[in-house]
């Protein structure tokens, strides 16, 4: 039957995806082409000068390092945290529906507002130092440029707070579709809680987790408001640099060149993820 579907049902699939392809192409086709060309074409024709400018900007390489470091550290923590939250809810404690709602709230907070609130916590005369001061422990300059470690941790915590809800909601919505019988069957055969997590829940959640991973990674490359609110220019990230070149420095060419880097890295990651996604769909069906 599966084979029959594959040979005969090709046209409906294309019909179903056609509107989205047409919509995206009409709307974003030209802007994307012109955006991409901008990185390589100047008033005097094709040039590598903008890439060179980008490369020679001292902030660029630290932005690359910061962005990658942040994503590499943030994403595993975030997924771990989201899974812990999801399984806490899955144990259905009293008031789980309320907990879920409260845990999803950061989703509603725009990244600008999120940056603002964490700034009010970590700034020199902020809430965190207020607590320390009240306890008699003295203040710490968390966001000082001299203190890369604490600056990084502050951004990490803020991003963990802001964006984990996204993963949580995807995982929870994925859990809704998983039949309880699997877990119950495993239980009957005496599997421990951890064994069931490892062999029943995680494999079944894999499609959701992978979608969450792809989306979260791509979006993580796109956000800079929190880092900028907390540290200004002291912790540059790539998209923030694009924005700075575009607005403050009024050089759309270099901005596009940096955007190309963001895009290239995002796409490479996406290809890697999609390869894993394909394997899993085979496994799941």
């Amino acid at each position: 039957m599966a084979r029959a579907r594959r040979t005969r049902a090709v046209p409906p699939a294309y019909l179903l995806i056609a509107p989205s392809v047409v919509f995206m192409a009409l709307l974003l086709g030209w802007p994307m082409v012109s955006g991409i060309l901008q990185a390589f074409v100047g008033p005097d024709g094709v040039t590598g000068a903008y890439l060179q400018r980008m490369n020679s900007d001292p902030a660029f390489w630290s932005a690359v390092r910061n962005t990658l470091l942040l994503i590499v550290v943030l994403l595993p923590l975030q997924f771990l945290f989201a899974l812990v939250m999801a399984f806490l809810l899955q144990a259905r404690p009293k008031g789980h529906a309320l907990y879920f709602y409260l845990w999803a709230i950061p989703l509603a907070v725009s990244d600008l507002a999120a940056g603002l609130v964490w700034l009010s916590i970590f700034t020199d005369r902020g809430y965190l130092n207020s607590v320390l001061e009240t306890l008699g422990l003295g203040s710490v300059s968390w966001l000082s440029y001299e203190n890369y470690g604490s600056m990084f941790v502050a951004i990490l915590i803020a991003e963990l707070w802001r964006a984990t809800s996204l993963v949580l909601v995807i995982v929870i919505s994925g859990m809704q579709g998983i039949p309880k019988d699997y877990d119950e069957a495993a239980n009957v055969f005496g599997a421990s809680y951890l064994q069931r997590l490892r062999h029943v829940w995680l494999p079944l959640l894999k499609p959701s987790l992978q979608v969450a991973l792809i989306l979260r990674t791509i979006l993580a490359f796109q956000t800079f408001a929190v880092a900028q609110a907390l540290t200004g220019q002291d912790f540059p990230v790539l998209v923030g640099e694009t924005y700075r070149w575009y607005t403050a420095l009024q050089n759309p060419h270099v901005a596009s060149a940096i955007a190309m880097v963001v895009m290239a890295v995002s796409m490479v990651t996406a290809v890697i993820y999609l390869k894993t996604l394909r394997d899993s769909t085979k496994g799941a069906s």
Binding site: L28, P31, G35, Q38, I214, Q222, V239, Y243, V262
Partner: peptide
């Protein structure tokens, strides 16, 4: 699909 999302909005918005 991901390609369209991977390019920073600021670069897209002016031609748009």
């Amino acid at each position: 699909l991901l390609f369209t999302r991977a390019l920073p909005i600021v670069v897209l918005s002016v031609p748009l």
